[in-house]
């Protein structure tokens, strides 16, 4: 059972206080989008072995969504950051690079 630090209320708590929300940084495709874009948005999720950026909600705590940069193999948590962003902030990227040089995830590296 993981422990995560919620960047919104600052608490470090066990996984039962949180709820996983799948892949982070999804770009929404709405009416007018191509079938292919919409299909990818809805269904094509990455499931990497290694560095992963994912969404969590602190649903038994402050109720806020946030993002976590985590390693799915070692379970290391490189950092968590607020959900109000379209890309991982530089300090998070640096923290990942320090441990996993040359990493990439979707369009980010």
């Amino acid at each position: 059972m993981l422990i995560l630090t919620c960047p919104c209320c600052g608490v470090t708590a066990e996984e039962t206080e949180f709820h996983g929300g799948g892949e982070a940084h999804l770009k929404r495709f709405g009416p007018g989008s191509s079938d292919e874009d919409f299909h990818d948005y809805l269904f094509s999720k990455v499931n990497p072995k290694g560095v992963h950026l994912e969404r969590w909600r602190h649903n038994y705590g402050c109720g806020k969504w946030f993002h976590a940069a985590r390693d799915t193999v070692t379970l290391e948590v490189y950092g968590t950051y607020p959900a109000q962003t379209t890309e991982p902030p530089q300090d998070i990227r640096d923290a990942i690079t320090a441990k996993r040089p040359g990493w990439s995830w979707r369009e980010f590296s």
Binding site: G21, R28, R55, R57, N59, G63, K64, W65, A83, Q84
Partner: peptide, 13 residues
């Protein structure tokens, strides 16, 4: 309620 918060916090913040 969660559905509303999710869209407000993560898409239309």
């Amino acid at each position: 309620h969660g559905h509303m918060e999710e869209w407000l916090q993560t898409e239309w913040w």
